[in-house]
């Protein structure tokens, strides 16, 4: 597949602060890409650069192989769904959606047809004459999406579009957006800080932090093989411990040596050891290297979330079986469950 958007060494600083640190990113056509990261990581800035609302200080922004650094937003074949929708309050639903088409001076008939199609796509047929202010958040969201998609952009940019919706509605919209993307066969670049949302919808997840891209990959790969402790922690909660890689396949942490499956870290190297809460099983304390006291047990529906304190660490454990608070338990995991990662710089 072709790359539709590429960022080459794109850097942005603002007031002496680095917002984007020479990032490189290739986005393939018809892909659902999610930029994921905590606030301030540069994901929205990246989106604004693609949309044309911000010029990078250096580096190239490529669109279908052409450099578009100097192309203003209104000349780019890209449309945006803004965080707070940015609908035009003085226009009704129909006119909001028709806005881009009117700018292009399409015939009244064509505008009617295309807006009609879009309303159908976002399940708002019959809402043409409605006032924007009288719509619910979810409905406004749909209008915003329709308003962008009606222009048939090659790339749709979405800036945390579901952030203002309640959980149930958000889940529904996630599915709908994914379906839309697949049926329309266009590229979606989606910005969110919600890792679950990212994993659910995306073909590719781009994890960002402090203006850097940490990892790019399919959701499964990112989840299972996080490149470092930050990614691991951000993509689902994790227990992250300081450890020393004694040699290939042997790591030391919590005062004990454990067998693991990783290699290639050299000998006696400081590393991060990541163990996912759901990979830990509770066992009777007698035979275990690590023992601790159960501090809290919270019911989470499918599983219980428990915090177990050992001498130097507080473990997060997910299990379908609940332990007794204040009881002593042993912590057990297999060599497969231990993920070794390079220490992050800084």
């Amino acid at each position: 597949m072709e790359n539709i958007v590429s960022l080459n060494d794109v850097a942005v600083t603002f007031d002496g602060e680095t917002i984007l640190n020479k990032i490189n990113l290739d986005i393939r056509d018809k892909e659902f890409v999610t930029l994921l990261g905590p606030s301030g990581c540069g994901k929205t800035t990246t989106l604004r650069i693609i949309g044309g609302f911000l010029k990078p200080d250096s580096g190239d922004v490529m669109f279908e192989g052409k450099r578009i650094n100097d192309l203003p937003p209104y000349k780019r074949n890209v449309n945006t769904v803004f965080q707070k929708y940015a609908l035009f309050p003085h226009l009704n639903v129909f006119e909001n959606i028709a806005f881009g088409l009117r700018v292009k001076k399409l015939s009244e008939d064509e505008i009617k047809t295309r807006v009609g199609e879009m309303l159908k796509l976002v399940n708002l047929s019959g809402f043409e004459k409605r006032n924007i202010q009288n719509l619910s958040g979810g409905q406004q969201q749909r209008v915003a999406i329709a308003r962008a998609l009606v222009n048939r952009p090659k790339v749709l940019l979405l800036d945390e579009p579901l952030g203002a919706l309640d959980l149930k509605l958000r889940k529904e919209m996630q599915t709908e957006l994914k379906n839309m993307q697949q049926s329309l066969e266009i590229t979606f670049i989606y910005v969110t800080h919600d890792q679950e949302e990212a994993l659910t919808m995306s073909d590719t997840v781009v994890v960002m932090k402090d203006g850097n891209i940490l990892q790019v990959g399919a959701p499964v790969d990112i989840y299972n093989e996080p490149k470092n402790a930050f990614v691991a922690d951000f993509i689902g909660e994790s227990n992250i411990l300081d450890g020393i890689m004694l040699r290939d396949r042997l790591v030391q942490f919590c005062g004990h040596e454990f067998e693991c499956v990783d290699s290639g870290f050299g000998e006696n190297t400081f590393v991060d050891v990541v163990i996912r809460p759901e990979d830990i099983t509770l066992a009777p304390p007698e035979n275990q290297k690590i023992k601790g006291i159960v501090r809290s047990v919270t019911f989470k529906g499918v599983h219980y979330e428990m915090v177990v304190d050992t001498a130097d660490f507080s473990w997060l454990i997910h299990s379908t079986r609940a332990a007794q608070v204040d009881s002593e338990v042993g912590i057990s995991f297999g060599p497969d469950d231990i993920h070794i990662m390079h220490k992050m710089e800084g």
Binding site: P73, A86, A148
Partner: peptide, 19 residues
């Protein structure tokens, strides 16, 4: 004012003044 509506208009194809 809604944030971004000026940008939204540009996004939909209007020049800055027209937006």
């Amino acid at each position: 004012m809604q944030p971004n509506i000026y940008e939204a208009a540009q996004d939909l194809g209007c020049g800055p003044v027209r937006s």
